Amino acid sequence: MAKEQDFYGSNVADAIVNACKELAAAQEDLIIDVLETGSPGIFGLCRKRARIRVSRKGQPKPAAESVRPEAEAAVPPAEPAPAKTPPKKKERPLREQKKPAPKPQPEKVERQKEVVASESKEVPAEELGPYVPPTAEALEAVRQDVAKLLELMSCPSSVTVELENQTVVCKVSGEHQDILTGQEGRTLDSLQYLLRKMTTRLLPDRTKLAIEVGDYRERRIEELKKRVLELAAQVREDGMTQAIPALNPSERREVHMLLQDDKEVRSRSVGEGLFKKVLIYKPGKKKPFSRKGGKGQQNDGPAEN
């Protein structure tokens, strides 16, 4: 069978040039399969290289079948040796050794505080050394990037940038606040995620970036806390697990912190991706979904951030 090799490039044409150069062959002498066409990404981020699989045309296949009859003629027709030593008997002790040891029972700890720590993922400041704040030039560059992005979205707005507790807060105001916020703040969260990727090169380590449109996030947190307290009271009354869907990491952390000292109810995150569901439930019982929560797969494993 002809030997195949994979080659990469910024695009398919570049990958083919690399293959021809490496194999010292013309393109018409090669069999080329395009596996990935590549992607330039967004704002230079998340680029993907093109990938092709190449083999030479007309390469003779090894004549394995023509040699086989002669080889079989030279070998005795029966080989009883392997049959006399069944491998299964020898493997039985190994299988017994490979049995996983029973896991020790974990010590009882305050579950809710573990959840809060998993959401924040913060490392103690003393282990990281002194914090170096961004320069005034870096803050101005961030402000210009935010203003330019909003202009490209046809939503020109006034942008101010301030440093608050190691977080660069970009405050946006203007007539396009409803558009920039979006339903349930999804557009705002997406903008924040994109700008964090864009401004990584401008901001020093341990510096976060947040975007606030008007006072949306402040109002959103207050409404979320009120809803959490109402659901927690309902769980205490009927024992049915309640769910709050599609919360971003900072919102989930607010929920866990609000309930971390509650001795009757707990909260935990389930799901994958940036937006996850938070369950509010009574500890020590199964966690079924309430009628309002709808049907879905329950995640009873460790809390996810």
Rank of each mutant, 00 (worst) to 15 (best):
residue 11 N to F: 00
residue 13 A to H: 10
residue 16 I to P: 01
residue 16 I to F: 07
residue 18 N to P: 00
residue 18 N to C: 00
residue 19 A to C: 00
residue 20 C to K: 05
residue 21 K to L: 10
residue 23 L to A: 00
residue 24 A to D: 14
residue 33 D to I: 13
residue 34 V to Q: 03
residue 37 T to Q: 15
residue 44 G to R: 11
residue 45 L to C: 09
residue 47 R to Y: 05
residue 48 K to Q: 12
residue 52 I to N: 00
residue 54 V to D: 03
residue 60 P to H: 07
residue 60 P to T: 07
residue 71 A to K: 15
residue 74 A to P: 04
residue 75 V to F: 13
residue 78 A to F: 15
residue 78 A to Y: 14
residue 79 E to V: 15
residue 84 K to Q: 12
residue 86 P to S: 06
residue 87 P to K: 15
residue 88 K to W: 14
residue 88 K to A: 15
residue 89 K to Q: 13
residue 90 K to E: 12
residue 93 P to Q: 07
residue 95 R to V: 09
residue 95 R to L: 10
residue 97 Q to N: 12
residue 99 K to S: 06
residue 104 P to T: 08
residue 105 Q to L: 12
residue 106 P to D: 05
residue 106 P to H: 04
residue 111 R to A: 12
residue 113 K to V: 13
residue 114 E to K: 14
residue 116 V to I: 02
residue 119 E to W: 12
residue 121 K to E: 10
residue 124 P to H: 03
residue 124 P to I: 02
residue 127 E to I: 13
residue 129 G to S: 06
residue 134 P to V: 09
residue 139 L to C: 05
residue 142 V to C: 04
residue 146 V to E: 02
residue 147 A to R: 07
residue 149 L to D: 03
residue 159 V to Y: 04
residue 160 T to F: 10
residue 163 L to K: 03
residue 164 E to M: 10
residue 167 T to R: 09
residue 175 E to D: 12
residue 175 E to C: 05
residue 177 Q to A: 14
residue 177 Q to D: 14
residue 179 I to K: 13
residue 181 T to D: 03
residue 182 G to I: 02
residue 182 G to F: 02
residue 187 T to P: 02
residue 188 L to I: 05
residue 195 L to P: 02
residue 195 L to N: 02
residue 202 L to Q: 08
residue 207 T to H: 08
residue 209 L to F: 04
residue 221 I to C: 01
residue 222 E to R: 13
residue 223 E to M: 13
residue 230 E to A: 11
residue 233 A to W: 06
residue 237 E to Y: 11
residue 242 Q to D: 04
residue 247 L to C: 08
residue 247 L to P: 01
residue 247 L to R: 01
residue 251 E to L: 04
residue 260 Q to L: 12
residue 261 D to K: 09
residue 263 K to H: 09
residue 264 E to R: 12
residue 268 R to W: 07
residue 271 G to W: 01
residue 271 G to F: 00
residue 272 E to V: 03
residue 272 E to M: 00
residue 273 G to M: 00
residue 275 F to H: 10
residue 276 K to T: 00
residue 281 Y to S: 09
residue 281 Y to A: 07
residue 291 R to T: 11
residue 291 R to Y: 10
residue 292 K to N: 08
residue 294 G to R: 06
residue 297 Q to V: 14
residue 297 Q to P: 07
residue 299 N to A: 06
residue 300 D to C: 08
residue 300 D to F: 13
residue 304 E to H: 14
